[in-house]
Design a protein around this nucleic acid. Structure first.
Lengths: 154, 154
DNA sequence: ATCAATTATTTGCTACACGCAAAAATCAAC
DNA sequence: GTTGATTTTTGCGTGTAGCAAATAATTGAT
């Protein structure tokens, strides 16, 4: 059991901040996805896919923290929209080799640019000397959060 | 049109951070909700409800950024679980007056404590001198994000 | 006082998000 | 070659969410 000694006020503030931040980030992602005719799941899949060569269903599912069956259907949608190509892996015919199509590569680039632009815009609204502290602080928060989540699979 | 002058590297880092933070916070909320036998929507509703006296369907929907019809069903669930009481407002019989039950008050307290405890735990994992900068930075980020979202209803 | 417009809630319908369990196909090992 | 493990897919149930129509109540104009 960890000893917890910091002031509760700070924890309460942080709780409130992450709660509100979560809602706003969700909204932000939903908007961006919609602007590109994608569902949120498809958006996340493409973004996580990134420039990765190719992968099979199960690997992507694991990285996205989703069930393989869910992934099948997300990829269904992206194949229907001609962003992904799904073909049987000739080495192991149980696997589906999933690859970005030409259009897929294109939209991933667009998506990344748009996503980064949003954050560039957001940064213009924050005092420049705060930028590095913000990124440092959030990096710490993220790793602490990841640790908490990993731990709590009790 | 705003001029955008900051370094793209920072924007890309921030994009990556908020993307990952979103996924992790979602996971965190889902866990907490599940531990209390609530769906995520119910969790958010109760948390937003907080210690507020009472409210009607539409007001809650507006605050939660959901449609009134969606709210009807979320409240349905919370009434079935005996956390909320729904009765006709005698002043205006079109309104439903929604109030926390005794059990409701209790679980909201539990929920808040648990939520704050998580963040207290997370803070123990971050250098103490970083706490205030973290909160300051995230407050700025949140207000910048809120501004971006409000603006972009173009 | 009555009737039309407005407002709040609910219900039916639809679409997406997600996981579990069973089925189908393939591989691996004996 | 049969058995067991692995990958994907399909069916089904549940949760999330909004829109449009139906219902009920209020308000306002005549």
């Amino acid at each position: 059991m960890n000893e917890i000694t910091n002031t509760p006020a700070e924890a309460a503030q942080l709780a409130d901040l992450t709660f509100k931040l979560l809602a706003n980030c969700q909204e932000k992602e939903a908007r961006l996805a919609e602007q590109h005719g994608l569902t949120q799941a498809e958006f996340r899949c493409l973004r996580l896919f990134g420039t990765e060569e190719s992968s099979n269903n199960k690997q992507i599912a694991k990285r996205m923290n989703l069930s393989p069956s869910r992934l099948t259907r997300i990829i269904d949608g992206l194949v229907r929209k001609d962003y992904l190509i799904r073909e049987i892996d000739s080495n192991d015919r149980r696997n589906m080799k999933v690859t970005l199509s030409k259009q897929g590569v294109l939209i991933v680039q667009q998506l990344n640019n748009a996503y980064i632009n949003i954050h560039r815009e957001i940064l213009t609204d924050i005092d420049e000397v705060q930028h590095k502290p913000l990124i440092t602080a959030m990096t710490h928060l993220l790793s602490a959060l990841e640790k908490w989540i990993a731990k709590d699979i009790s």
